[in-house]
Design a binder for these strands. Structure first.
Lengths: 154, 154
DNA sequence: ATTAAATTCATACTAAAGTATGAGGCAAAA
DNA sequence: TTTTGCCTCATACTTTAGTATGAATTTAAT
């Protein structure tokens, strides 16, 4: 059953050939009687096979694919941060100061920063104080603001 | 000239018909000589017209278009800030709280905010306290961080 | 090896931030 | 009209942030 479904096209083709041969034989017999019906016969064959060709072509050729490219806008989140290395080196921030700055920007308290970096609260205070000096600010919020403006942090 | 190009298919069709008729006539003459070459003749016609049918079908049928949509990512400059009004209304921040939040994000101290908005320091403290409650944060730096994440402030 | 910068931490202090609570005024909604 | 939410401000208090100073240790460079 599956074989029939899968090879339907080929079976149909065979069947049409068989039918056509029958018609041909019949026409052949007619040809003996009617002497000049030959052109009609040839035309019939031509027509049928052309039809068969068209049908085959339609069935067997894979459909043409028109590839349509649709541009879809995708907002890329926060991909535009480029570290301003010039400013960073100009300010002369040390690595620890940068870590503290980043943690401050993340909204952590000095105590939390100390825990995160395994340091004492006083050390964090020292670092942040020096950081503020270098950034020429008075408060952590200002530091974050300025650092963001200078493209030192995202 | 344009006519030729545009109706090339039809002209080709006509030409092949003419050629075929010539071949047929020639074969007809051959038939008188060779008596039983009839089946071969019919087969030739069948073959040719089937080929013609296939060719015609390919040329003349409009292509079946399988539209393949290819999504192309277009990077949109994420530089412009779009206020997340849904979040803003969900949080229920009052206008004063928003002003204070903005000032905090600008790196101002409570005292400076009070001066900017012509209010007392205590009022600013009250506003910021309520603001922190609504934003579910403990510190002003956290408030700025969260507000930025929620697209409430640029 | 010596210098210089960076890191760590401490103490002591001041300043600012944040919490809790209450209260008066005001405008819009029920 | 009463209620409700917002704005304002105050007092009192706790917590966190920030400054100043000094010192020991580590690390990198001269």
């Amino acid at each position: 059953m599956k074989f029939i479904i899968r090879n339907r096209s080929i079976l149909l083709y065979g069947a049409s050939l068989a039918v056509l041969l029958l018609i041909m034989k019949w026409l052949e017999w007619r040809l003996v009687v009617l002497d000049h019906a030959f052109e009609l016969y040839a035309g019939a064959i031509a027509l049928m096979f052309m039809a068969l060709g068209i049908w085959l072509s339609r069935k067997l050729t894979q459909p043409k694919t028109n590839t349509i490219i649709v541009e879809k806008e995708v907002v890329v989140e926060a991909g535009d941060f480029i570290l301003n290395e010039a400013e960073l080196s100009r300010l002369g921030l040390t690595s620890r100061e940068m870590e503290v700055l980043q943690s401050i920007a993340d909204g952590l308290s000095n105590q939390q920063i100390a825990e995160r970096l395994f340091l004492s609260l006083n050390t964090i205070k020292t670092h942040s104080s020096k950081l503020f000096e270098k950034l020429e600010v008075q408060r952590r919020t200002q530091a974050v603001e300025k650092a963001r403006k200078l493209k030192i942090i995202p």
